[in-house]
Amino acid sequence: MSELWRYLLAIAVWPGLLVAAPLGWVEVWFVRKLVARLQGRRGPPFFQPFFDFMKLLGKEMVIPVGVSRAAFLAMPLISLASVTAALAIVPLPGNPIPSLPGDVILLLYLLEMPVLCEVLAGYVSGSIYGQVAAMREAILSLAYNLPFLVAIIAMAQHVGSFQMRALQGAPFSAITVIAGITFLLALPARLKTNPFSIANAEHEVVGDALVEYSGPALGFFKLSHAIELVLLTQLFAVIFVPPTAWPLLTNGVYLAIGFALLAGITLLATTTGRLRLTQAFRFYWVWGGLASAATLAATLIW
């Protein structure tokens, strides 16, 4: 099998679009259902995220007057493409892509793309609500990226390599635990769930940065969010959980950890209210900063 086919297979099938999209929908359904059950409701049917996506595909797309058509339509596609490419790099068992030197840096770059796309989408749409949401998102990303990036870079420093396979094979130690906690600290804000749902505050700024998006463009944004759920939970499992000797079992363990993480984050989301932007920012620069310092100190000591 040639190199090109391997990459295509990884991006299109496993762990790319064809598997990640249904898995993302299942995870979105899981989160929505769990929120509903915790609130004493029945919740949406199993295929709900799929129906939402198909309906949005069949809707008309309204592009606001005075907005660059190319920029408006490029944002969801770039977002989806970079999330899928990022997932293709993650060394899940059975991933056909060979390990590249320095793919951790590529992954970190691709992880930032959906956030950047959403910020740009808010600004490009010309809506004042979209711009406020985009501003909130941009400021929040400056806050949570400190612990998020430090957790991954500390693991790379610990292993002594910027290669995903090396991070995956890292022996379990105290640093794994400390860096894992630092990563978990950033995860709720990264997924924009409740204490940090500042950018998508539906009661304050109508919706998120995507208020002006409709039809297929909105559908692709929603799909890229669903795949982002898979990406971030699987990324946690790959970096911080040691793999087993059997690939299938490892995948099962990773999936179970992904769902457990989502359940924890959902529980946090349903039991908390929304923080203000300044409070969230301070939380991440004080507690996130302390956790980051502890993580880096741990890598230097051990």
Binding site: G43, P44, F51, E202
Partner: peptide, 11 residues
Amino acid sequence: VEQIGVEFHGT
């Protein structure tokens, strides 16, 4: 009403 797939949106 989420049981029948309804979501309320501000926009």
